[in-house]
Computed example of a mutant assay.
Amino acid sequence: MMETVYYHILDLDIVGKEEGFVPYLYDKEKGWQPDKDNVLMDRVTGYDSSESKGSSYGFGNTDVMSLVQEITEDQARKLINEL
């Protein structure tokens, strides 16, 4: 069975999930949508777009990583219902 990890993207107040290594964002109009812009994974990996290409500080930025919190499926459902 595929593992699913749910996240609350704090700065945007949206719910995301990673299902089988594929990231999704929840849209209240369309439901789960593939995260084509890497909104979730940029935060999970701490990707800092302000760093120059090739910079060793481009990933692992703890300020960026603090913008996302892993949550349970029940917490995700509750947040989705509040949208």
Rank of each mutant, 00 (worst) to 15 (best):
M2A: 11
M2N: 12
M2T: 15
E3G: 02
T4L: 04
T4C: 07
T4K: 08
V5T: 13
Y6R: 05
Y6S: 04
Y7S: 02
Y7P: 02
Y7A: 01
I9S: 04
L10T: 11
I14M: 10
I14N: 07
V15L: 10
F21M: 10
V22P: 02
L25I: 13
Y26D: 03
Y26F: 15
D27Q: 12
K28T: 08
E29A: 07
K30Q: 07
K30E: 04
W32V: 01
W32Y: 07
D37W: 13
L40V: 10
L40N: 05
M41K: 09
D42E: 08
R43D: 02
G46R: 09
Y47K: 15
Y47C: 09
Y47D: 03
D48E: 14
S49K: 15
S50N: 14
S50W: 15
S50V: 15
E51T: 11
E51F: 08
K53F: 11
K53L: 09
K53D: 06
G54F: 13
F59P: 01
F59C: 03
F59N: 06
G60K: 05
D63G: 09
S66M: 07
L67P: 02
L67D: 04
V68G: 01
T72F: 04
E73P: 03
A76F: 05
K78I: 13
K78L: 13
K78W: 11
K78Q: 14
L79P: 07
L79F: 10
N81F: 09
E82H: 04
L83P: 02
